[in-house]
Design a binder for these strands. Sequence first.
RNA 1: GCGAAAGUGGCGGAACCUGGUAGACGCGCUGGACUUAGGAUCCAGUGCUGUAAAGCAUGGGGGUUCAAGUCCCCCCUUUCGCACCA
Length: 827
Amino acid sequence: MEYDFKEIEDKWQKKWQADRIYEVTEDASKKKYYCLEMLPYPSGKIHMGHVRNYSIGDVISRFKKMTGYNVLHPIGWDALGLPAENAAIEHGIHPAQWTWTNIDTMNKQLHRLGFSYCWEREIATCSPEYYRWNQWIFLKMYEKGLAYKQKSLVNWCPKCKTVLANEQVEDGSCWRCSTTVSVSKLEQWFFKITDYAERLLNDMNQLTKWPEKVLIMQKNWIGKSSGSTVIFQVENSPHRIEIFTTRIDTIFGATFLIIAPEHPLVNEFISIEPDYEVLKQKVDELRLQAWKNRYTEEYDKEGLFLRRYAINPFNQEKIPIWVGNFVLMEYGTGAIMAVPAHDQRDFEFAQKYNLFIKTVIKPSPQEDTTIADNNAFTDYGILINSNEFSNLASHEAIDRMNHHAQINGFGSHTISYKLKDWGISRQRYWGTPIPILYCDACGIVPVPEKDLPVVLPENVTFTGTGPSPLEQAEEFITATCPKCGNKAKRETDTMDTFVDSSWYFLRYISPHYSNGPFEKSKVSYWMPVDIYIGGIEHAIMHLIYFRFFAKVMVDLGLIDHVEPAPFLLTQGMVIKDGAKMSKSLGNVVDPEELVNTYGADSLRLWMLFAAPPEKDMEWGDKGIEGCYKFLLRIWRIIIPHLDNLKKAPADYDVTSLSIHEKELVKKLHQTIERVTKDINERLHFNTAISSLMELLNTMSYCLHEGIQSPSFWSVMKEVCNKYLIMLSVFAPHIAEELWELMANEGLIFHQEWITYNPDLAKEDIIPIAIQINGKFRTTIDVPSGSTEEVIKNTAIENTVISRHLGDKNIRKIIYVHQKLMNFIIDK
RNA sequence: GCGAAAGUGGCGGAACCUGGUAGACGCGCUGGACUUAGGAUCCAGUGCUGUAAAGCAUGGGGGUUCAAGUCCCCCCUUUCGCACCA
């Protein structure tokens, strides 16, 4: 009988599905375990990254199930978004059709890989039953003031007359028509994530089981910094400019102010100038530069003098006001004080425009500041030229100056964050319609809850140019104002798909519930997620939004846990030829072909064996063959001996075993210990699998040695059955088949995980490493538990050791219990 | 530039926690067995130098220690993330 993986995998997949073995419900008598993998985008076909992600999740799910947990292991589809719309434009397929076809294909592929998903809970975010709850959450957030509308900049292609996503801009040009991209200002919807900046930061304390690097990245992204705001009065004007600085100690060295091109005062100042048009053009240029260059390498700092002066409130000095292309409106207050002597960017700007440079910090009381090699002195130091603050150290000065500004009413200590509010508006079709109406009489009116969902119209055309398809869908736009009954216009923006993926894990818990996004009682049973597995590339955006949503939902009284997933496992990328697999590089390996050639079990095994989960995995074409051979060897060790194995009595007397049988039993128990630990504690499946390979080698050796006493087949029977249980979490199909062939009752899936006996795992003879003067020379074998004295004597008698010792004087002996002995001798 | 992680045979990777036999397991390679044949299977070997004894080896250089892949300092390289953040 040959190992026919096709037949075996097909047989068991059908059986599992027919028996609905992966279905779960809440069971208060059992500990729950929620194993969650990141929501996949249905791009068309499963790729290696998916296989890796889900193979990891499947081992954990199966293991937890076998160790007595009630395991929730769901899957679904992140089914809205740009690619479907692109497909519609290019191939004339409706986004819905394209998406559902892809989901169907990928669903089948996942089935063929034999993952233990609870398919009854499968969700697709593009179904109105799902996205209606995006709309519901939006309305709740709107009520709380967490959703608001504001003008902001977008990429705009003047030829296609359409808004472009960042990824649709290639080298500053439109990806379709190569026209240079310009910027445009649009009213857009935002979520007020900045209100949660401090909590997002603080609650990281709870994330002790997240990778350190993800936490650091999020921390930098939130970018909390402590500084000061200071108000400068504009000379001969009622206007004031508020600036933000982290270095108020350098304020006596402020020789000019720079404000962002979008700053409202810019227009205020230039609008009354005679050459307004020229100035306006220059400012627009600066703004464009600032926007376009935000994703590029460093560029020249440019600016324009606004012909106004501001008064430094600390020394009443009059300093010029400039507009600059490197000051961002969305960070701080959109205005800075420029201290060229102590800030590199300000320094470069001052040099370019010949502005005054004044030194106010020196490194130490002994040294003077020198501006060498065109570098500003940006370290902290001792203040000079700063009136009553002179001779103070920077840190002391910062406190005193903050206080000074505060009591005189022109500033204060301020905390600032880099984190910006989350812009959720998309001028696209294939997204969740934002449930808002515009009424001439009542203004912005939210769609009443009872009218949800606002469903996407089906009959639309996709051209890739002009306004969003929704804006052209007359019957969609036309609505009635729920307040006054007059005609109203429907919002045509749809939501960012990160909204969908911010709460989907809650929908899995009660996927068909229609009275709310989820059933609270069930949520309190399953939440929080016990392990969240996904790619490191989602370290920031998705994982911040996801944490933000949980906090909002806690505030809305919907859930209890402010951190939805206290344990995060970030898997590395699958690399081939030193680069991430991608279509453009042409180094993609198709999992489906591998399943056809080697079977799902082999593929999954190789994904797990090649590297530990958190590391990038180098794809090697030959590796999977090794895994296939490994399964084949298991098959060939059991199948020819099925009769013997089945006939053999289950019990045997441990004390009367032969040496080889004892060896085999010992190896079995050692393997159980290692595999259990590797899966449960270390999550290093590569070493767990290698232990199984070692045990197989021992089994193979014992069989070949042909030492088959009466108890031999009983021992082998136990080893094989326990082997299959361990194997089943990695290669479930072959394990299930062999389990059945061994005439065992029930599915292996329903078996309990096995435990090991420490007494049986113990070695009788152990090797002790012998060093001389710290240098390893040889090992000696001694009975386990031998005393130091016995080990010493055995070592001295050893030929290698005695040769090195000669008649030299042993000064000292260092002994590490049951491990090592180091003889320190005279040279 | 800033932040983070990582550098171990021809290759993927072991050596965890706690400094204590570096190279588990697999791939590849070499030899052998069985075969009409083998790109199947099984067995053996495989870090480098050396007949051996032994010596040298964990990116490079220092240090701590009886003992360092592991701890400390400096440098180099690679990957990832961020990028004018006032």
